[in-house]
Amino acid sequence: MSKLLIVDDEIDVREFAKRFFKKRGIDVSIASGGDEALNIIGRHRPDLVLLDIQMEGLSGMEVLRKLREEKNDIKVIMVTGAEDPSIIDEANNLGVKGYIHKPLILEELEKIVMKELKISVHAN
């Protein structure tokens, strides 16, 4: 079973995405901040992380930097709001799979996630 980690400080985003992807047979875990995310990644080893850049406390970029420092090449998709282009460049250099811009329709996200997890999307 593919494992997905959703990191976002917005409770609605986390909870509804979790519910949505669970219905698609994915093992979803959630984190509300950077520290919690690193913790879960260490313990749970998800296949894909949806990482919000702007968060209270440890930001998404800081999480990404730490992961790459620890030589962890886990698949990451950044979720961006209105970030500076320099941050996007840095994220690219740190080997992210892509970014999604807020706001995003859930169906679009589904396609991206399914592709990265190599699960074919069918209307079930």
Binding site: E10, V13, A17, R19, F20, A82, K102, P103, I105
Partner: peptide
């Protein structure tokens, strides 16, 4: 400001998307 408003829209997009699903 756009970040804050985007966050609202983003959350609502997810909520609506799940409900539609």
């Amino acid at each position: 400001l756009s970040h804050q408003i985007n966050n609202r829209l983003h959350a609502m997009g997810f909520i609506a998307g799940d409900a539609l699903d």
